[in-house]
Design a protein around this nucleic acid. Sequence first.
RNA 1: GGGGGCGUAGCUCAGUUGGUUAGAGUGACGGCCUGUCACGCCGUAGGUCGCGGGUUCGAGCCCCGUCGCUCCCGCCA
Length: 600
Amino acid sequence: MHAYRTHTCGQLRKSDVGATVRLSGWVNRRRDHGGLIFIDLRDHYGITQCVIEPDAPAFAVVDQLRSEWVVTFTGKVVHRLEGTANSDLPTGDVELRIETVAVQGRAQELPLPVFGDLDYPEETRLTYRFLDLRRERLHKNIMLRANIVTSLRRRMIEQGFTEFQTPILTASSPEGARDFLVPSRRYPGQFYALPQAPQQFKQLIMVAGFDRYFQIAPCFRDEDGRADRSPGEFYQLDLEMSFVTQDDVFNAVAPVLAGVFEEFANGKKVTPADQFPRIPYAEAMLKYGTDKPDLRNPIEIVDVSTVFGHADVEFKAFKNKIVRAIPAPGAGPQPRSFFDKLNEWARGEGAAGLGYIQFEDEGGTLVGKGPIAKFIPAAALAEMVKIAGVKAGDALFFSADAKADRAANLAGMARTRIGRELNLIPQDEFKFCWIVDFPMYEWNEEEKKIDFSHNPFSMPQYDREKFLSLNNTDAETILGLKAYQYDIVCNGYELSSGAIRNHDPDVMLKAFEIAGYTREETEQKFAGMLNAFRHGAPPHGGTAPGIDRIVMLLAGEENLREVTMFPMTQQAQDLLMNAPSPANQKQLKELHLRVIYPEK
RNA sequence: GGGGGCGUAGCUCAGUUGGUUAGAGUGACGGCCUGUCACGCCGUAGGUCGCGGGUUCGAGCCCCGUCGCUCCCGCCA
């Protein structure tokens, strides 16, 4: 007989009755009846009830077992007594009658109970992650993650992609997030950088002629955490394809994502792969006030600036402003506090407030109510009703600002909030869309210069010769340029970002020049890539869905830590392994480093 | 870097207007119990109320500072 087990704890059935078996696992729970002890033994596969009576030789040892001790039981599988079967357990028809016991590992009193599904403080959960991972919720999530990754790999390989590894120690690249640096021992004062993404490598793989690449790629960015953004590191399904148009990338990626969602969504509705709406960036900003709209929310924002511009509309606060209206279907009868709360929230966000009109039916005509309704004559009101598509019983909120992006932004946040408050967001759906036609550049107000608004490696949607002859006095043209740059969004989360790449060295130099990099700087920073592009580069493009967020959505979690095996805190510390930690003098010396602590 | 929330027994929490010895459940320990599966019953131990300072006759509670976790803003090509 095997030293530890003949079966797992999820395996025994009626058909095993009579067999002598051996099980190993953790003591999930013990029920001591004095004359009779039940032990629920748990392993990765399940739970089996084990039982012992006082006259058994092993009784004295079993009597001492406590929660989370690791033990091996040997004994006979028996039917449970009439009426004592447990239909909640797959093994619930039988139990193991303990004949011998071996203690493999004792456990101290637990800082975090494994049994039960209460919530515990993050600090405890992270410090004792190995205990938390034993618990059902996390154990299940991590297995889900593994299965999703396996499915993604299979789907990619079936589509003719090949998985390649790329370096972890590489060079820092300009733009983007703060890098993690690794000091070089052999080259004093020089540093490797951990890749923010294998962006340049995957493009080089295309130049090298491998045609279709993918990788479950670790990415490192020294940025602060959020619920949907781990500090430090995360994983992407990184992919790149040669000789493709934007449509080819869409047709390759959508089935993988829709497929994996259908496979793991547990019956929730998923947008079919060939039906992801394509929403231009500008339209998304107008209708949803964000470039990552939650399409489950039926509310669509409209622009009503012109209505408030009419001479007979005397609401001064909205004059000469961009005014966006957010319809709130059915919100009309809500109590005053509903509107006050939203207004308060908007002020908290730095806005002047969130004006509103409630619509009521008065003898067959639609009339506006509320603090600002009296400033709007009937004709203007009717115009607004038509634009916004509201009816009696609805309300309309207003977000106004001199700057369009700020008005859009607040409207977007209000849309989300109103949708939630009014319960307009169905919970049993995954709604995908493509956001396309991102601007190539944006104006950096702080530094008064033109910046890349997204990935600097994207191909501009513009005639090559005209692009090369642009100069910085054409600011308006430049800021109006779109790129072959696209995102995949699902339920309000940005799942993926990608582009058709710029594989033309002259266009690339020009693109960086517009963003303020001299040709020399670009030549130096991207020597490898530019050099490669000068030796026969295929047109190529790709994208990189975030694995962590995909798993989070499919697990129904709202925090990445729930789907990450060993996460860091929001302050980027690993409480289990104690990272980061100081380097010793010898290490520092080898690396030619001296630490200068910040002044307090 | 900034703003909000939280911090009381191993764990989850309660704790009134500032008022005597800070409570409950659970876990731990001991006793009883032969069919439980959140077993039950009895008992015992367990507290730097995150930490430091202040106000007060008196602080878990009020004030100031600080630390930790978290959510958000900044940041995230």
